[in-house]
Amino acid sequence: MAAYRADEEYDYLFKVVLIGDAGVGKTNLLSRFARDEFSFETKSTIGVEFATRTIHVDGKLIKAQIWDTAGQDRYRAITSAYYRGSVGALVVFDLSRRVTFENTARWLQELRSHTDPNIVVMLVGNKADLRHIRAVSVEEAQAFARKEKAFFTETSALESINVADAFTGVLTQIYHVVGRKVLAIGDDPSALPIGQTINIDMKDDRQAANKAGCC
């Protein structure tokens, strides 16, 4: 028992799902965030994979359980259960492949139909390093995100740009929402700080981003 106690220390536990078309770089985004790794030989995800990382927000330990789902159609019927209990989602598309951006609408729709309406959603345009073959403009993506009441950011898992910010952004936002007790969460964050002003300490994020700086 004792061996496992160490990784159980946290104040909040949030489940976040990563969704988006196959090959947009979900797995690498996650490995960059969780372990600061990137691989060109990432195998396609079968079913679902997981990673966790703990961050500090406002002196609180927030543990993120991130569910990295397979982007392929064939799993859809089985995998809708993945959304259960999630309080945040990163909807990822490939900036250089327009079709993946167009499909985000479908992903969002599926997400909304399975989750709490207050779920925190961030639209992520990945592969920002492929500037020369960009197929989706920032303005267009931003407009779409606004329409969908989602946050938007562009990342590059390869060059480690914005990756940690994207995740911590979602997590701090969830923390806010939980602080307002708006969201009904499956996992029990028993003692909620009510009426407190929550200062978001972004120092850690920056540190994380800096640490992740080389590629």
Binding site: L13, F50, A51, Q65, W67
Partner: peptide, 9 residues
């Protein structure tokens, strides 16, 4: 484990 994610992990 006390949590689905940890368990699956």
């Amino acid at each position: 484990t006390e949590n689905a994610t940890f368990c699956l992990q």
